[in-house]
């Protein structure tokens, strides 16, 4: 029998708008690769990072790949904890309705769809980050 590896809490902290810099896409690619290692993964979107999750992104006019569709695949990769800072949304005049609804299908519950995106306040987010073993910044 294979030995159970150590599971650590990994947090990917996303603080940049998409497309203007490469950070958002790089973070997404690292997350998709890291998902194979069966670790406890959380994604955090704060500051301009909240723009990564907006609905209706249309990149035809700028000739770049619209990678916002890939966030909906995160559930397939067992990523079920995506936190968005409430205050960052408010400062930008955005609400939850401006964001994609991200879900995962619970295999153990007849593939029922469940929310994976949580809008959390500053204090709660601070607690979540403080509980992590590793925080990777993008």
């Amino acid at each position: 029998m294979e030995e159970e590896g150590i599971v650590k809490k990994f947090c990917y902290m996303n603080r940049k708008a998409p497309y203007g810099t490469i950070y958002a896409l790089e973070s997404l690619e690292v997350v998709l690769i890291a998902a194979a290692f069966d670790q406890d993964i959380s994604l955090v979107f704060a500051d301009d990072g909240v723009y990564q999750l907006t609905k209706n992104q249309d990149t035809d006019g700028i000739g770049m790949k619209n990678f916002s569709k890939t966030y909906s695949a995160l559930g397939d990769y067992d990523i079920k904890k995506i936190y968005v800072e409430k205050e960052s949304l408010e400062e930008r005049g955005l609400t939850t309705d401006d964001l994609q609804a991200l879900k995962y299908e619970d295999e153990d519950d007849d593939w029922a769809e469940k929310d994976s995106l949580f809008v959390v306040g500053r204090d709660e987010l601070s607690k979540i980050i403080n509980e992590q073993d590793v925080v990777l910044s993008f």
């Binding site: 708008a17 998409p18 497309y19 723009y51 907006t54 609905k55 209706n56 992104q57 249309d58 990149t59 035809d60 006019g61 700028i62 770049m64 619209n66 916002s68 005049g93 401006d98």
Partner: peptide, 14 residues
């Protein structure tokens, strides 16, 4: 620049 607004899921109306 309009195309950059659309790319970020933002709306010309805003």
């Amino acid at each position: 620049l309009g195309p950059d607004i659309k790319a970020r899921g933002l709306n010309d109306g805003n």
